[in-house]
Amino acid sequence: MEFYKLKANPKRLFLLDGSGALVSAFFLGLVLPSFGPLCGMPKNVLYLLSVIACIFALYSFACYFFLRRNRKPFLRGIALANLSYCFLTIALLCRYSQSLTIFGWTYFGLELFIIGILIRFELKYASVR
């Protein structure tokens, strides 16, 4: 999705963010724990990250459905929350680096990359006048 399309309807950023958070919650809370050592991250950590993703999804969907105007502070809020999630994930990757598998590194690397792109769009729109 290109920036000019999002700028025309910035509400879509909340929908995109919420949908992505739900996908993350699904993988972190259901898929990865089911495969145990395939990823190398402890189940309790995966569940914690999944709960955080669910909270972010609720926030984003609430903003999508209920905000009528002045969305910029709320976009800034979810962008900062996503950035905090990325820092938490990086800290957890460092903490559990010895047990992570190549699959785990790949999954979390892709997740961080995608969230980083989303943060860039959210902050870019939030700063546009």
Rank of each mutant, 00 (worst) to 15 (best):
L6G: 02
T101K: 06
R95E: 04
L32H: 12
V45N: 03
R69G: 01
V51C: 12
G77P: 12
K124P: 00
Y64S: 07
C94L: 12
P33R: 08
T106D: 08
Y107P: 02
S34Y: 11
S127V: 05
T106C: 10
R76W: 07
I55P: 09
L15Y: 10
Y47P: 00
F121A: 10
F27M: 04
R68Y: 05
L123I: 00
L93R: 04
R68K: 11
D17S: 09
G20T: 06
L80D: 11
L6R: 05
S50W: 07
A57Y: 02
R120H: 07
G109A: 08
L100H: 04
S34T: 14
L49M: 13
V128W: 11
L46F: 05
Y107N: 09
V31T: 04
G20I: 03
S19E: 13
Y59S: 06
A53C: 08
L67Q: 09
L100W: 01
P10E: 14
R69P: 01
N70I: 04
I52K: 03
G40M: 14
R120V: 12
S50Q: 04
I55W: 09
A79H: 07
S127Q: 12
R95F: 11
A79L: 08
L123Y: 01
T89Q: 11
F56G: 02
F61P: 10
L67C: 13
F121P: 00
F103G: 03
R68M: 05
S99R: 06
S60C: 15
L22N: 00
L6Y: 12
I117M: 04
S34D: 06
G116Y: 09
Y125R: 00
L100S: 08
R95V: 10
A25W: 00
L16G: 02
S60R: 11
K11S: 15
M1E: 05
S24A: 14
L15V: 06
F74R: 04
Y96N: 03
I102S: 08
G77D: 09
E122S: 06
A62L: 08
L46Q: 12
F61R: 00
I102P: 02
Y4D: 15
L38K: 09
G20E: 07
L75Y: 10
I119Y: 14
L80K: 11
